[in-house]
Every structure is written in C-alpha cells, then in structure tokens.
C-alpha cells in the first residue's frame, strides 16, 4: 500500500493497538498496585537478598521476578514505580505541552517582538546540555515529585515551541487565514479557531513523545540519586541499583529496564500512530 507521498504505508492499526495496550496495562497496574503487588515494595529482608526470578535455580517462592540486594520484591517495586512514572508522564508532559505550544503559537503567528523575545530564549535554552540543566535545577529546587515536574517543564518547553512556531508560521501564511481575517475574525480568534486545529495533530504527537521523555528524565534523575526520596520505588532508582550489582544479580537491572524500554517505545509509537491517523493530508 502506498500513500499520496509515495511512501510505503505501515500498518497503523497494529502500532496503535500494541502501544495503547501496553500503556493501558501499565495504567491499570499503577492504579491497582496495592491490590495486585505480591509484596510490600519497601519491605526489606536481608536473608532474601538477590534471589533470582522464578524459573531459575534457588528462586524463592512468592518472589516472581526475584529480589534486590536488600531483599525487596522486584515485581512489586516495578508495579509501584509505574505510579510515579505515569504521574510524571501525564502531569509534566501536559504542562510542558501547554507552556511550549502556547509560546510557539504566539511566536509563530504574531511574529514581531513576541517572536524575537521567545526565539532568543529558545536559542539560549538550546545551548544548555539538557541533562546537566535538569540536575542543576533539581539541586536548586530540592528532590521531590513537584521539583521533577517543574524541572521538566522548564527544560523541555522549547521542544514544543520550536516545532509549533514553525508550523504556525507556515499556516499563518495560507489563504484561509487571510480570508478568516477578512471575514472579521480577530487576530486572537483566528489563532484559536484556525491555526490551533491545524497544528493539533503535531501537538498531540509531540505530547505523547514528551510523556516518554518525561519518564526517561525521571529515571535519569533517580539514577544520579536526585529524584524522589529513596523510600518510594522508582524505575530509575531500581536501574541505578541494578547497574552496580549487574554482575551478581542481572534481574535487578533487566526487569525495570524492559518496563522502561517498552513504556518509552509505546509513548513514541502512540504519538506517531496518532499523528498519521489525524493528519488531514493523509486522511
């Protein structure tokens, strides 16, 4: 099957279903974590340290995916970790999107001095190494969920602003915008009623991508021990611990890594799939 641009059309359906399915599963796991987690994710048992997963020699019954060096259940920690990951994805992703898309829209459609100021800030932001910026911000704001969300919004708004600015600019030059103006719409009204719906597919695709990125940023911050207090289980924290004991207990690293991998992949594939589906040209 070939579409209008001569590209081979990939099966959109399977991608959407698979990624949507994994994320739904994850959301359910996060919501029901207290009901389905086999163990208390914080409970330590030093006699049960580094027990392998169930199919291996020496596994402890009841600990399906094994235990970490402090004897905590890996499966339960992954399930509880999903809560934090998804909250960060949804809240930080949405706030970043709203902030960045608004600035990009204003910058690209109004042009003039708002554009000059916003673009200057985008330039400055692009000159920062993002991970270092994030770590610096957490050092300033102090560890905690709110700090992570604020840091992600502060760092990543440019991702939306740049793309939406360019899109709004090209949309703004089109005839339908001029006719809307002639028909008596205000500048602001045109932006909301004409430009916004046309850049929405891009915004949606960027939003799901950003959710995946937010999960990664949280994991990276946990990895350098700057995320949340060490009490709450996070995937990044588990990965960090697993990295140090990878030669003795690979499962402490592998299972949270697979979860994180699939989650990030699902977010981005969901975004691509939705974009194709909502793209007015392809539809």
């Amino acid at each position: 099957m070939r579409d209008a641009r001569g590209n081979i059309r990939r099966p959109i359906g399977a991608r959407l279903w698979l990624s949507g399915g994994w994320l739904t599963l994850l959301a359910l796991a996060a919501i029901c974590a207290p009901l389905i987690a086999p163990k208390d994710p914080l409970m330590q048992d030093l006699f049960l340290g580094r027990m392998p997963p169930f199919w291996m020699e020496g596994a402890e019954p009841g600990y399906l995916l094994g235990t970490d060096s402090l004897g905590r259940d890996v499966l339960s920690r992954i399930l509880y970790g999903a809560r934090l990951a998804l909250v960060v994805a949804l809240v930080a992703g949405t706030l970043t999107c709203v902030a960045g898309a608004t600035l990009g829209l204003v910058s690209g459609f109004y042009r003039g001095w708002p554009d000059r100021i916003i673009s200057r800030f985008v330039d400055i932001w692009m000159a920062f190494p993002p991970v270092l910026f994030a770590i610096l911000l957490i050092a300033v704001l102090g560890p905690g969920l709110l700090s992570i969300i604020i840091a992600i919004v502060i760092i990543d708004w440019t991702r939306f602003a740049r793309v939406i600015r360019a899109e709004a600019m090209s949309q703004g030059a089109m005839d339908y915008v001029a006719s809307a103006q002639v028909a008596g719409r205000t500048r602001f009204g045109t932006m909301l009623a004409e430009i916004l719906p046309n850049v929405l597919p891009t915004i949606v695709a960027l939003l799901t991508l950003e959710m995946g990125i937010a999960v990664i940023v949280e994991a990276i911050l946990s990895f350098v021990n700057l995320s949340i207090s060490t009490d709450s289980p996070t995937w990044g924290g588990m990965i960090s611990e697993g990295r140090t004991s990878v030669h003795q207990a690979w499962w402490v690293l592998v299972f949270p890594l697979i979860t994180l991998f699939l989650t990030v992949l699902s977010f981005s594939q969901l975004g691509e799939g939705l974009k194709d589906r909502f793209d007015p040209v392809l539809r």
Binding site: L209, G212, I213, I216, A219, I220, F223, I239, R243, V246, W250, L253, V254, L257, L260, F261, V264, L265, F267, S268, Q269
Partner: peptide, 13 residues
C-alpha cells in the same frame, strides 16, 4: 524513540 541512556543500559547488559 529510545534515548541514549536506555541504549547504554542495554549495551551494558
């Protein structure tokens, strides 16, 4: 869609 940090961990494994 997978960032360098995750590829690094996969490669370590």
């Amino acid at each position: 869609s997978i960032p360098d940090f995750l590829w690094g961990l996969v490669l370590i494994l």
